[in-house]
Design a binder for these strands. Structure first.
Length: 853
RNA sequence: GGACCAGUGGUGGAACUGGUAUACACGCAACACUUAAAAUGUUGUGCCUUAACUGGCAUGUGGGUUCGAUUCCCACCUGGUCCACCA
């Protein structure tokens, strides 16, 4: 048993003093950039799940350093944002103060795990010297017209009292606090991330070293669908019994655009649906005979939360717009129009052509309201694609078919297969100017405003008088952003610092708490010098984390976000590790931000993260997620104290495949610790004399070198540990161990268990760190076994094992194999039809199957 | 409903491009050491059969390809993750 507390403390102090992890840009050396997703210091500290990812990155960083790479392995803190602010409110402290405290706690914990970072490069998103560049990037986006002010209804969290991006909503609830999210119209800043949708999608192909599942998630989130927008003429006649004064007037023609991915089914369209928010209703008020009913329906929908509204189990509801008809551009037929909340306002055009025979939702709606269901596609196979919802009982059984097939009942499209019909219909629409090809994405523009205090101030100023002038074209403004957002100007005096205040609780009015600070809000217009006001919304948490990895490369540069030299040398990131929950948030935002910086000439790669691997969760011993609620949280500090950081590291890596969720088991910790004790005890067998002969251990040793090196690269750390265990067990069986062999063992274990390895390394007489030694390379000559075990099979079933010299001839093996008593019995008098021979592996006699049994 | 992933002993899991299934670890059992326990060490440990050799059966279920399938193909069942009235 070694004293882990003493040894670990000792080496942490020495590593810190010798600055072993500080790196400098060195063009003569190859670089390696190993990065973790930086944490936000939330006040409750780290649990055992956190170190899993950090330790893995630390292992890679240490190994790469030993392999001669100039390794950048930094850490920082994502300290802005809701959790930090909510925690500060709860504890009645200032977020600035609270954040500082939390960072200290996190740093101490991180160091205690034996992860050594280059702290001289630490970044903190709340540092004005850092967020100056977050604001700078935003300013560039604004100038290029990627930022716009919007008043559209967005997700609003009533508990956090702030607007949220789509990415922040999970299951209709606020990702932070779990409150049911409402739709609320709110003035907000929005970034046109959708301008990058196509590139965000296509460039995923440039990332072969990303896990497929993450790539898929991003593809789903971006959600590209190709189809057409089609124009339907709308006819209406004045309301018959309207009491309104304008009711008798002439009504204008109206065109309703719908988006569909199945233009080929247009002849099966039997009605149209618009979302309750659609402007058609406003525009045609005078022509809607049952306006009261329609308005009542819309009001009812507006009072529903998003969660209720999108509940799939609820009945579809809707109201027909009486007096209004649409004309099918293909058939000329008159169709009724409905308003229904199963059509979403913010996807496509907010209006659809309903084809109940070929769309499940339309089918359900048509069934309920007794609308015609008309076939336009026939299935090609025998299969009837009947989809029946479990909670519904449909009388008609064969009318719904959602797949590809052959077009029927459709005039000039008849007989065509679905893809050809789509193509022909789109060409027809384009020719007649009745529609066009259109691509839509599920990805929405990025709602970038938060009505909260603890975030980066948005560096914009509004001047009311300039706004008027821009609108009336009396004032020409330079940038696209200023044209797009009349009266808004950039404040270039970055950083725009967050003022220190006594009260920062959210106001709940849709205004940020900053709005109450007059001396901060009131300023002068950068354009005319007149009185103007600052933007009081702040940026979301994701802003600062979208580019932090660049800042580590050049953390103290006050002239630019990153110098060209540092950017060229350190980027892209070679290995990035973090949680899969960021697949559709941080990893999308960061890729977008990076691409924007690429377009702006700041960075030279189109993608920031060459290789990404997700960390699997560590579950509690009961198999559930660790949570205070279940009282099943394992405290890493306690584990480090009882078993040591090295044991914790070894155990967490050994638990199972890195990306997979695995349940914690404290018994496993004792296993990891026993292994380390064995390594420690082997020291007694070490003989300084180098043994001349090649021992069986050396063959295993070199195989282990090969396996460990290979598996670390692939992040197969569980098998790294097991390979080392096998080696250590074998060494334990030896009478004595050559010092050279033992040193190699220590080097292989060093990334996993740095403290113990360093201690033993020095006990052998080394004066420099084991991490300054060169990573061992397997000697190919020693990898080969002289004697191999071969398997003898009869008809594919194992019947005997043979120990034979390696690379023996097939003829000789056959002879030996057939001489074996057991094999003889199986072969007996049977005729050998075929012999399969795999060198050094197996020999398989195939005998006549009929006679064999 | 869709996308993706997974299903191997009592448990976590291993098995490279199809080639000895169950490595490694935990747990369990017996033994040793001990007054005793803990710790440590040794041995055993998929199921059935057998005193043993042996033989048979086993990688969610059912089929297929193959000399040979945990691995490849088809269908189904179960679980997980993400997305979801996205037209």
């Amino acid at each position: 048993m070694y004293n882990h507390q003493e040894i670990e403390k000792k080496w942490r102090i020495i590593w810190d003093k010798t600055k072993i992890d500080q790196v400098k840009l060195d063009n003569k050396k190859p670089k390696f950039y190993a990065l973790d997703m930086f944490p936000y210091p939330s006040g409750v500290g780290l649990h055992v799940g956190h170190p899993k990812g950090y330790v893995a990155t630390d292992i890679i960083a240490r190994q790469k350093r030993m392999q001669g790479f100039n390794v950048l392995h930094p850490m920082g803190f994502d300290a802005f944002g809701l959790p930090a602010e909510n925690y500060a409110i709860k504890t009645k402290t200032l977020p600035q103060v609270q954040t500082k405290k939390n960072v200290e706690i996190y740093k101490k914990q991180l160091e205690q795990f034996g992860c050594t970072y280059d702290w001289s490069r630490e970044v903190n998103t709340t540092d004005p010297a850092y967020y100056k560049w977050t604001q700078w990037a935003f300013v560039q986006m604004f100038k290029q017209g990627l930022v716009y002010e919007s008043h559209a209804p967005i997700n609003w969290c009533p508990s956090c009292q702030t607007g949220l991006a789509n990415e922040d909503v999970e299951d209709g609830k606020c990702e932070r606090c779990g409150a049911v999210v409402e739709k609320k119209p709110l003035r907000q800043w929005v970034i046109k991330i959708t301008d990058y949708a196509e590139r965000l999608l296509n460039d995923l192909d440039q990332l072969p070293e990303w896990e497929e599942s993450i790539v898929q998630m991003q593809k789903n989130w971006i959600g590209k669908s190709e189809g057409a927008t089609i124009k339907f003429k709308v006819k209406s006649s004045p309301a018959r019994n309207a009491s309104r004064s304008d009711a008798g007037g002439k009504l204008k023609d109206y065109e309703l655009e719908v988006f569909t991915t199945r233009p080929d089914t247009i002849f099966g369209c039997t009605y149209l649906v618009v979302s309750p928010e659609h402007k058609l209703i406003e525009n045609l008020e005078a022509g809607i005979w049952n306006l009261e009913e329609v308005k009542k329906y819309i009001d009812g929908v507006k009072n529903k939360s998003d969660l209720e509204r999108t509940d799939l189990n609820k009945d579809k509801t809707g109201v027909e717009l009486q007096g209004v008809k649409a004309i099918n551009p293909a058939s000329g037929e008159e169709l009724p129009i409905f308003v229904a909340d199963y059509v979403l306002p913010d996807y496509g055009t907010g209006a659809i052509m309903a084809v109940p025979a070929h769309d499940e939702r339309d089918f359900e709606f048509a069934q309920k309201y007794g609308l015609e269901i008309r076939q336009a596609v026939k299935s090609d196979g025998d299969k009837k694609f009947i989809k029946l919802k479990v909670h519904k009982v449909y009388k008609v059984e064969d009318e719904l078919f959602c797949g590809d097939g052959t077009v029927i009942n459709s005039d000039f499209l008849n007989g065509l297969k679905t893809p050809e019909a789509k193509e022909k219909m789109m060409a027809w629409l384009e020719e007649k100017e009745l529609g066009r090809r259109q691509v839509h994405y599920k990805l929405n523009d990025w709602v970038f405003s938060r009505q909260r205090y603890w975030g980066e101030p948005i560096p914009l100023i509004f001047c009311a008088s300039c706004a008027e002038k821009v609108k009336s074209s009396k004032l020409k403004v330079e940038s696209k952003g200023e044209q797009l957002n009349p009266g808004w100007f950039v404040d270039e005096n970055l950083p725009i610092t967050l003022p220190e205040v006594d009260h920062y609780e959210p106001t709940g009015t849709g205004e940020s708490p900053l709005a109450n600070i007059d001396e901060w809000v009131n300023t002068t217009c950068p354009h005319c010098g007149g009185p103007a006001k600052r933007e009081t919304n702040t940026m979301p948490q994701w802003a600062g984390s979208s580019w932090y990895y660049l800042r580590y490369c050049d953390p103290h540069n006050d002239k630019e976000l990153i110098s060209k030299k540092a950017e060229k040398y350190w980027n892209p990131i070679d290995f990035y590790i973090g949680g899969a929950e960021h697949a559709t948030r941080h990893l999308i935002y960061a890729r977008f931000w990076h691409k924007f910086l690429y377009d702006s000439g700041v960075v030279s790669d189109i993608e920031p993260f060459r290789k990404f691997r997700q960390v699997g969760l560590i579950l509690a011993e009961d198999g559930r997620k660790m949570s205070k609620r279940w009282n099943n949280v394992i405290n890493p500090d306690e584990m480090v104290e009882r078993f040591g950081a090295d044991a914790l590291r070894v155990y967490e890596m050994f638990m199972g495949p890195f990306s997979q969720a695995t349940a914690w088991n404290t018994n496993g910790m004792t296993g990891a610790r026993k292994f380390l004790d064995k390594v420690y005890n082997l020291k007694l067998k070490v003989k300084s004399l180098k043994l001349k002969e090649i021992t069986p251990i050396q063959s295993l040793l070199h195989k282990t070198i090969k396996k460990v090196s290979h598996d670390i690269d692939n992040l197969a750390l569980n098998t790294v540990v097991s390979a080392l265990m096998i080696l250590v067990n074998a060494m334990g069986d030896e009478e004595q161990i050559a010092q050279g062999d033992y040193e190699i063992l220590l080097q292989l274990i060093a990334p996993l268990a740095p403290h113990l390895s360093e201690e033993l390394w020095h006990e052998l007489g080394h004066s420099s760190s084991v991490f300054c030694s060169a990573w061992p390379v397997a000697d190919e000559a020693l990898l080969k076994d002289e004697i191999v075990t071969m398997v003898v099979q009869v008809n594919g079933k194992v019947r005997a094992n043979l120990s034979v010299p390696a690379d023996a001839e097939q003829k000789d093996i056959e002879e030996v194999a057939m001489a074996d008593e057991r094999v003889k019995n199986w072969l007996a008098d049977k005729k050998i039809v075929k012999v399969i021979y795999v060198k050094n592996k197996l020999i398989n006699f195939v005998i006549n199957a009929k006679n064999a049994n």
